[in-house]
Amino acid sequence: MDWITKWFGKGQSSKDSAKQRLKLVLVHDRATISPHLIEALKEEIMDVIRKYIEVDDSGLDISLDESGDSVALLANIPIKGLRRNSNPANSM
């Protein structure tokens, strides 16, 4: 009987749509990073960037962007100016 209903195009079984939908929604659910982690991430990113570029710490914004079925880490870092000597090896 099962194959007959499938043959006549009742389409996907409900468990398959359950699985697909769950997999998609969990990509988004899992993409929440704790505020604590975001702060730590910010600090470290800024430490690296400061070696090369003069940045405006107050304007810094790091967030997760969810669009469609993918998630991206977005960082918006306003620049004050480039360092004259942007080779970090020299400044150390």
Binding site: D2, S14, K15, A18, K19, K23
Partner: peptide, 16 residues
């Protein structure tokens, strides 16, 4: 229900 394909089975859930 699992046999009819109308319920997630253990492999699906473990996979998810």
């Amino acid at each position: 229900m699992v046999k009819k394909g109308e319920m997630l089975d253990q492999d699906d859930i473990v996979d998810i």
